[in-house]
Design a protein around this nucleic acid. Structure first.
Lengths: 123, 123
DNA sequence: GAAATTATTCTACATCACGTAAAAATCACA
DNA sequence: TGTGATTTTTACGTGATGTAGAATAATTTC
């Protein structure tokens, strides 16, 4: 239950990239700004999307301040890692899949992974 | 463009698990068989889903035989690897994500990966 | 070869997710 | 308290998916 529509994704990208929490108006402006497939949306549209993202647990809203402020509930990295784990699933062919998956990454990335794998478990 | 609905997924699972191509009737029976959240569907329903999966490129149909026979167009492994690559994306934080991702797998799996990574590229 | 059976394609509808936003309700401050 | 800003409600169009009846086509049977 973590699939996102185009607009939802755009909003999440902005929230992930922002250190500060953003308001609906901030987001509307950013979305209209040239750079990210500029859209010119009504604020209510942004608010609707934010409400949906909040319900999905991807966004947290500060109701204390008046123009409510929104934040991604977890980092983009966390999110992606979750997606990867969902995609990998609990199937029996996990190892085979993993093998092929990491077999397809770049040499640099492979080197990084090797380092990680060789490091002692810090669990 | 590779998301699947529940029924679509069930059908794909059956096709992936079957060495032989299956007919719509075969699939209807399998779906009704107790084990996989038994459903009791009309054959036309199965046919509709198969047509959609075919359009999505996930299924190949043999039109030569009369009861058409359906096959997964690629293995489940291929499919999952694709999903993983899609999820990983082309973002800049790929390495960080990969690190965390493989940091979360089992020791056995890690060992396998280490072997793979240490093996010479056969590209 | 015409009838009966089987299989495939068409057409259709309900539901849900998502993009989109006007209308209505609230809130805050002058 | 009136007015402007903000949020909540309500709503509609579209596309995906589950579901299947009706219509059509192909096979088999007598």
């Amino acid at each position: 239950m973590a699939s996102l529509g185009d607009l939802e994704r755009s909003v999440m990208e902005l929230l992930w990239d922002s250190a500060e929490p953003l308001t609906a108006n901030d987001l509307r402006d950013e979305l209209a700004a040239p750079g990210e497939t500029a859209k010119d949306l009504a604020v209510t549209t942004v608010l609707t999307v934010l409400a949906r993202l909040e319900k999905k647990g991807l966004v947290v809203r500060e109701r204390s301040t008046r123009p409510h402020r929104y934040n991604a509930s977890s980092t983009r990295e966390d999110h992606t890692v979750n997606l990867l784990n969902e995609a990998l699933g609990t199937a029996q062919d996990r190892e085979a899949v993993l093998a092929r998956f990491i077999g397809g990454i770049s040499a640099d990335e492979a080197a990084t992974l090797r380092a990680i794998l060789d490091a002692p478990k810090t669990a």
